[in-house]
């Protein structure tokens, strides 16, 4: 038995806006959670996706925590490819819970100037997550065209590009060079456990 272990949870995201909840038990021989990292199939899927995480009912990352804060590129030294907790989280065959929300429909967000909140959106109220609730599609995005740009087609490909207006919001995907997201894709959550 080694003094460390990389415990993994694999999620498969099947559609835009899907929320996937998981729970797992930490390996009984390890008493500390030192770090966590996500690995996501397509860069385009990172845009607006969120990941919440709890250990023994205690919130570590809230549900609106952005997934891109937990990923890494290959330009990062291998030993720095995690978010290391300042204080390791104590474990004892603990209940690990998480929820990943895909938000590849970010480009379909409405213009915030029409929001009664005046553009300030509560972190937990990102509207694209409402496209998939309790196993049912509320809104079908199987074929979406905005400003003559194909956003999604029936082949399950969401281009991640475009926007609902002719302008491109700051930080949004470039319509001329969209980062494609293909469904399904996998999210791997790696947790660094130690004794």
């Amino acid at each position: 038995m080694r003094g460390f272990r990389y415990q993994q949870v694999n999620l498969r995201i099947s559609r835009s806006g899907q929320r996937v909840y998981f729970n797992a038990e930490s390996h009984k021989d390890y008493t500390m959670l030192k770090g966590i990292a996500l690995s996501i199939g397509y860069d385009g899927a990172l845009f607006g996706s969120t990941f919440g995480f709890r250990v023994d009912e205690k919130k570590i990352l809230d549900e609106s925590h952005e997934a891109h804060l937990l990923v890494f590129g290959n330009d990062v030294p291998p030993n720095e490819r995690m978010m290391f907790f300042e204080t390791p989280v104590p474990l004892q065959a603990s209940k690990l819970e998480g929820i990943y929300t895909d938000s590849a429909l970010q480009a379909l967000l409405g213009n915030t100037s029409y929001s009664p909140g005046g553009g300030v959106i509560p972190p937990a109220a990102v509207n694209v997550k409402k496209t998939f609730v309790s196993g049912k599609d509320i809104v079908s995005y199987s074929h979406v065209i905005a400003d003559a740009i194909l956003i999604s087609d029936n082949a399950g490909v969401f281009t991640g590009g475009g926007g609902l207006s002719s302008g491109v919001a700051a930080g949004s995907p470039d319509p001329a060079n969209p980062a494609p997201v293909y469904y399904p894709y996998d999210v791997r959550i790696t947790m660094y456990l130690s004794k």
């Binding site: 999620l11 498969r12 099947s14 996937v20 399904p184």
Partner: peptide, 16 residues
């Protein structure tokens, strides 16, 4: 990887 199978709508956690 792009040929992954959709494992249905019930749960996205899959058995490796």
């Amino acid at each position: 990887y792009p040929l992954l199978v959709d494992n249905g709508e019930d749960s996205g956690v899959y058995d490796p």
